[in-house]
């Protein structure tokens, strides 16, 4: 096990790598995964919740999806305590922008500001980087619907379909194969569920392990962030045929 260039985030190894940042990405590889797909009429986010114990109180609201502003939401993979800090700053940033300019913050600008924060922790003062990857989805008047992915190094990029968390590479390649241009929101949901069910470690996809959120435009032109209810998810799973009801009865 190497030690010399590990202990500080701010020091390059002779091969030109930042180990702490790479370890942070490793940490995310074990987290519950999330998939985002850009559709023509919206953005779809699907996340896998890791159910650690049945005694654990499941929160009434979402665990992996967070609304940042009326027109912006994100899905998280990684260390939740780190994520909470970043989500908080993101929300404050979005409101500061609105306070200053009296209009909603452009999506990329928010992603960029958050990634600046992340980057700072890979360069300055003996701290560790944030162990979080995000999928940002949102709508703004300049570029319409957008989907961004960010990692602990502070890199971000725009995607048509992206996956973070456990087995993200497998998911990514499946998305690459099955993604088509001009995908509707409903088809995007189906695709996301299909990919998630195949890349997840657990055998069957059930509504209590799943979160689904969508961003789309209402007929009035307002942006809507909508989280799917557990009942709605169960129906969706049956309809999409991802969840075979004929599976062997659980012991």
């Amino acid at each position: 096990m190497s030690r010399r260039y590990d202990s500080r985030t701010t020091i390059f190894s002779p091969e030109g790598r930042l180990y702490q940042v790479e370890y942070a990405m490793e940490a995310i590889g074990n987290a519950g995964s999330a998939i985002g797909i850009l559709a023509t009429d919206g953005v779809v986010l699907v996340g896998e919740k890791k159910v650690t114990s049945k005694l654990l109180q499941t929160s009434k609201s979402t665990e992996k999806m967070y609304k940042i502003d009326d027109h912006l939401a994100c899905a998280v993979a990684g260390i939740m305590s780190d994520a909470n800090i970043l989500i908080n700053t993101a929300r404050v940033q979005a409101q500061r922008y609105t306070f200053a300019y009296q209009e909603p913050m452009p999506v990329e600008q928010l992603v960029q500001s958050l990634c600046d924060t992340k980057q700072g922790y890979t360069q300055f003062g003996g701290l560790r980087p944030f162990g979080v990857s995000f999928l940002f989805s949102g709508w703004d008047s300049n570029f319409g619907f957008q989907l961004y992915m960010s990692d602990p190094s502070g890199n971000y990029s725009g995607w048509k379909a992206a996956a973070i968390g456990a087995n993200n590479q497998a998911a990514q390649s499946m998305l690459k194969q099955d993604y088509t241009e001009d995908l509707g929101r409903e088809e995007a949901v189906n695709l996301a569920l299909k990919v998630l069910s195949k890349t997840m470690d657990s055998t069957s996809l059930t509504s209590d392990k799943l979160e689904l959120a969508e961003i789309f435009l209402l007929p009035s032109g307002k942006v809507k962030y909508q989280v799917c209810s557990p009942e709605g998810l169960t129906k969706l799973l049956l309809k999409s045929g991802v969840n075979q009801p004929a599976a062997e009865p659980s012991a």
Partner: peptide, 10 residues
């Protein structure tokens, strides 16, 4: 509005 929005989100 700023403060209320943050309250709503949290």
């Amino acid at each position: 509005v700023f403060r209320h929005k943050l309250y709503q989100l949290r």
